[in-house]
Write a protein that binds this DNA or RNA. Structure first.
Length: 107
DNA sequence: GGAGTGACACGGA
DNA sequence: GTCCGTGCCACTC
């Protein structure tokens, strides 16, 4: 459990329902501006824990790239819709509208 | 030690 | 909006 992983988990847990954020933003907020891939890697290891709403994390295009890593390929989009986030064709049309900017934890 | 890979981002066409 | 090439950090052969 590296400090970076902790920050990523903390940030993801802080994402309010009905909102989503991107790997790049989380990576940057966690202190690794170029570590977007690491975020996905960490979430993949942590899988989908109740304390880790990974379904609220999408890529910069609003595409649900991580859906394949959930219990079912449709679970991710299902959870988002359940929180009020419209999902069309495995992506969020109005991403900018539901985007949540994570706070800097790199103090 | 080196090469390949991944839930990505960015710039250019 | 899309596709392609490059850079990024950490992990696994």
């Amino acid at each position: 459990m590296t400090p970076f992983e902790k920050r990523v988990v903390e940030l993801v847990r802080r994402i309010p329902p009905g909102k989503v954020t991107t790997y790049g933003l989380i990576a940057r907020a966690a202190g690794l501006p170029r570590g977007a891939r690491m975020v996905g890697w960490i979430l993949n290891r942590r899988k989908f824990s109740p304390d880790l709403p990974a379904h609220r994390v999408v890529n910069r295009h609003g595409l649900l790239t991580g859906k394949m890593h959930f219990e079912t390929p449709t679970l991710m989009a299902q959870l988002l819709r359940n929180e009020g986030v419209p999902v069309r064709d495995d992506r969020i049309p109005d991403l900018d509208r539901y985007l949540w900017i994570p706070p800097q934890t790199d103090e």
